[in-house]
Design a protein around this nucleic acid. Structure first.
Lengths: 193, 193
DNA sequence: CGGATCGTTGATCAACTTCAACGGTCGTGG
DNA sequence: CCACGACCGTTGAAGTTGATCAACGATCCG
């Protein structure tokens, strides 16, 4: 159950057996069925969740009712509305399962306890957030720099697994384009070859 | 010299006098004249920099030669190409001063020493990156959701100081629109009142 | 089997960009 | 200290990308 979890953490910091056992006590395991919600807009996001198995998406619905995918979370990724989680304010994102999933969740108070008890977890999350920040920065840059076609090509290169596992309309939403445009873009690209 | 610096850090974590003195030894103070570069694309970003006074911008130049502002750094903000800084790979951003500035810089090896010696600094940077991540997430959402007019209005509400201190063409670049569009958008908005 | 969901295609439309020109202001060098 | 060039913001006209609206076929799943 904690295989993916610890292998992911141990990529960034080292933990002894005792620390591992302690960490496990802070987390709650949960299974999510496809289409089941982990969070809805307007709720307070109570958990920071690690995806052990499956695939989640977090997305926002704008005033026109259009969905915008914020991020996907494959195995080994974390998912949450971190603004809501850390501040206790209302969430702006929905989170649900694209495939049946198994997740590990921690509450804010347990997160605080854990990081104070095991300071190296602050280091882990510092590195995690730092890397996420880089990814977001690149995505933001990409979104203002590239055409629809280039955005899709870039994603195809950098994250082919996502394209295989996620329906096309969600990929479009993630890229900030319409499903129609993505369809045309794909046609264009295959025509070129 | 370290006023803004410590008041900013102490908002997030607590430090005793000894820790403060230790931290100071890791940083290098530097003055930057307006238009002076701190980093150029293709270089390795050797420093993580804190703005004690002044205003920096980081930006990328795309294949067409168009500049895209990644972020501004006012007093109390950090600036760096964090990808380059932490990986040692080539930087994709330029960083220069919009106004004469005073900054505090730390190298990666000193950053590592500092966080290992004073683990609470991992916590500080965890919180810092966590907050930056939220900001970037919101900006990314805003960039796909809102019209040019709404983007400008949102920035005006959330960060009026930036609009006062930064030339309009750089604001446009930051918002991912052309200076011409921003000019028209501002005209529209003032007309409405 | 039948409805819902998904991807595709076509036609029209709107937002924003691009290109071009102009006036104002800033700052620098002679 | 003034003049001139560089830079900045504005405006207009035309062009382009991607959105919108609508219809249709395919597939999945209960």
């Amino acid at each position: 159950m904690y295989n993916v979890f610890f292998s992911h953490i141990l990529e960034k910091v080292t933990l002894n057996e005792q620390e591992k056992q302690k960490i496990i006590t802070y987390f709650i395991a949960k299974k999510l069925r496809k289409k089941e919600f982990l969070l809805k807009e307007g709720e307070i996001c109570r958990y920071l969740s690690f995806v052990e198995k499956g695939l989640l998406k977090s997305y926002n619905v704008d005033p026109k009712g259009i969905e915008h995918v914020n991020m996907f979370a494959l195995e080994g990724w974390w998912s949450s509305d971190i603004y809501s989680f850390f501040t206790g304010e209302k969430a702006i994102f929905y989170i649900d399962a694209i495939q049946d999933s198994e997740i590990l969740m921690i509450t804010l108070s347990d997160f605080e306890k854990m990081t104070l008890e095991i300071p190296i977890m602050d280091r882990y999350f510092r590195i995690l957030f730092q890397n996420s920040l880089v990814t977001k920065e690149h995505r933001l840059l990409s979104s203002v720099t590239y055409s629809a076609k280039e955005k899709y090509s870039n994603l195809f290169q950098s994250n082919p697994e996502l394209i295989q596992r996620v329906p096309q309309n969600l990929i479009a939403s993630y890229l900030g384009i319409t499903p129609e445009t993505l369809s045309r873009v794909k046609k264009e690209i295959t025509k070129q070859r």
